[in-house]
Each structure stands twice: as C-alpha cells, then as structure tokens.
Amino acid sequence: MGWKKPRTSPTTSGPWYARLATSAGRPAVLAATLLMSMPGEYHVAKFAGWTDPWAYGMPFSLSAYAGIAAVVAATRPKGARGRFSATVGAAFAIVLALAAQVVAHLVNTHHMDQDQAWLIAVTSMVPPAVLAHLLHLAATPVPAPSTSVDTAETPVVERVVEPVVEEQPLPAVPPKPEQAPVLPAAEPRPEPEPEEQRPERPAVKYTDPRCAVIRPLYDAGYRPTTTEMRDAFTAADLPAPTGSTLRGILRAEIEQQEPALATLPTRPTPLHRAG
C-alpha cells in the first residue's frame, strides 16, 4: 500500500479535551515560562553592566537561542550534519537559562554578591557565543528530503486461487463387437472442492500514511519495538520520527484499526531467549 507525504503534522489521538490541552496548552505554557524567566535574565544582564534598554535583549537572546537550537535538533534526521551541534546548543541554552534564574534569585535574596568578576565575565560572553552558534547552524546545509518512495496510491490486488480439477480415469472399453452393447449412462463426476484460500490482509486507510512503513513489521507475529520501527524508516530512506510519535501516534493508530495486533507479544531479546 503506497502512502502520501502528509501536508500537515499528524493530529494527536485521544479525547477532545486531551487534544485541546495539547494544542492550546503548549503555547500557554510557553508564554508563561517566557514571562517568568524574563525578569531573572534581565537582572543578570543588569548585574553584568548593561543598561536599559540593552539589558532587555538578554531574555530574548536566550529564549530565541534555546528555541532555534531545539527545533534544529528535532527536525534534522539522525546523523545529519549540524544535528549534534544543535543538540549541544539546546542543552547549553537550557543551562544558561537555569543559571540566570538561580543567580538572579540568589542575588535578590542576599545569598550571593552581584559584584563578582567571574559572574560579570560569563554573562558578558553570552551574546557573542549565541550569535556565533546561530550563524554556524544557519551555514550548515540541510539534507534534501528523499524522493525514493513512490507517492502514488498503489491499488490493492486480490489474489484468486483457481480450483484444481483432478482428472478421473476413463472406464475400459471392450472391443467393439458386430453390434455394440448399450452401455449404462456414466455417473456424473463430483466436482472437486476448491482449495481453501488464504485470508488476505484487509486494506486499511490510515489517517497518517507513515503507518504503512511499520505495518509489515507485525507480519512476523510480534509487536514492533521503537528500535524496529526506527530501523524500518531508515531502511526506507526516510527520516525517522521521534520515539513518542512512533509509539503514541503511528503504532497506536495501527492497533486501533486492527485491535488484534495490540495483543501480539514483543519480540524476545537474546538475553530472554538464553534465560
């Protein structure tokens, strides 16, 4: 069964209130955390010697840096150039944001002195370091998407097994006398029963066409793991989704369409087979 590349991101399965919390909750949480983080990052910039309005640039630079690095790390396929650097940058941005909050609150509660040389030096290096890494990510080429997968719909062809007819031996005919005897009418030969046809896999129309990549893994009699599903995308020369997407969206939709697949056992590991 062929599949078409989805134009939009797949919708999270579940009740309407769960989908609403996922779609509307994430922007609300993002806005709330940005607003809560801005005062601490602003005060750290003030401690380092920046005056208004330049001190307001520290919250925006850290937030934008963390978001850009996280998006680049999540969207580039495994092994692509620049993905490791983006992952390190996202972790570094999180550390900077956490450190800014901790330092600001320690200073405001008089547990730490703001006039320390190391604090001023580290804070002063943040903007140029962020700019250099963002320019590095922008200069790293993004690999072109693979076009090796046929995007046309492949029709489902049903296999028809024709019954095999066994030939019955003909009765022996005696030599023809001067007057041929009248032979009794031959009994009708019974029709052979057709062979039992093997049941075909039902043709399922998935809402997310990427399900067709991992559906054949169930034919082995086991419920596929995250590693097996990711390997199937790699073998098809396609970018593998995240583990949560493979388990919570693609595998969940397949097992929702065919509930019997959810009862299959997981393939035993070599350690389980040895034990």
Results as ranks from 00 to 15, higher is better:
122 V>N: 02
235 A>R: 15
154 T>Y: 03
189 R>M: 09
220 A>Y: 06
15 P>K: 08
204 V>I: 15
220 A>Q: 13
74 A>C: 09
193 E>T: 14
37 S>P: 02
163 P>F: 03
79 G>E: 13
116 Q>D: 08
167 E>L: 11
158 E>S: 01
80 A>I: 04
265 P>L: 06
97 A>V: 04
127 P>L: 11
225 T>K: 09
103 V>A: 09
165 V>D: 04
190 P>L: 11
43 H>V: 02
213 V>Q: 05
130 V>R: 02
197 Q>M: 02
62 L>R: 13
249 I>A: 15
9 S>F: 07
247 R>H: 06
255 E>C: 15
25 G>T: 12
117 A>D: 05
152 A>R: 15
222 Y>K: 07
28 A>T: 14
257 Q>L: 06
104 A>T: 02
247 R>V: 05
214 I>F: 03
95 V>F: 14
136 H>V: 07
104 A>I: 03
83 R>W: 09
37 S>H: 12
9 S>K: 07
121 A>P: 01
55 A>F: 02
63 S>C: 07
20 L>C: 09
170 L>I: 06
54 W>N: 11
11 T>Y: 00
223 R>W: 12
141 P>F: 00
1 M>P: 09
263 T>F: 05
15 P>A: 12
205 K>C: 04
132 A>Q: 01
126 V>L: 14
255 E>S: 10
38 M>A: 15
25 G>V: 11
242 T>I: 00
79 G>D: 08
273 R>W: 00
235 A>H: 09
128 P>H: 06
120 I>D: 03
259 P>H: 01
260 A>C: 00
251 R>A: 14
121 A>N: 09
77 P>T: 05
13 S>A: 10
270 P>T: 05
164 V>P: 01
250 L>E: 01
20 L>V: 12
200 E>Q: 14
179 Q>E: 13
88 V>D: 03
204 V>N: 05
226 T>V: 15
266 T>I: 12
44 V>F: 07
176 K>A: 14
258 E>A: 05
215 R>P: 02
49 G>P: 10
242 T>R: 10
193 E>P: 13
111 H>C: 10
10 P>T: 02
33 T>K: 11
254 I>Y: 03
216 P>S: 11
26 R>Y: 13
72 V>L: 13
155 P>A: 06
209 P>F: 01
35 L>G: 13
248 G>F: 05
29 V>T: 06
178 E>P: 00
116 Q>I: 10
36 M>R: 11
240 A>C: 10
17 Y>V: 06
248 G>S: 15
11 T>F: 05
35 L>H: 06
125 M>K: 01
216 P>E: 08
53 P>F: 03
104 A>P: 03
164 V>K: 04
137 L>E: 07
161 V>E: 11
201 R>Q: 02
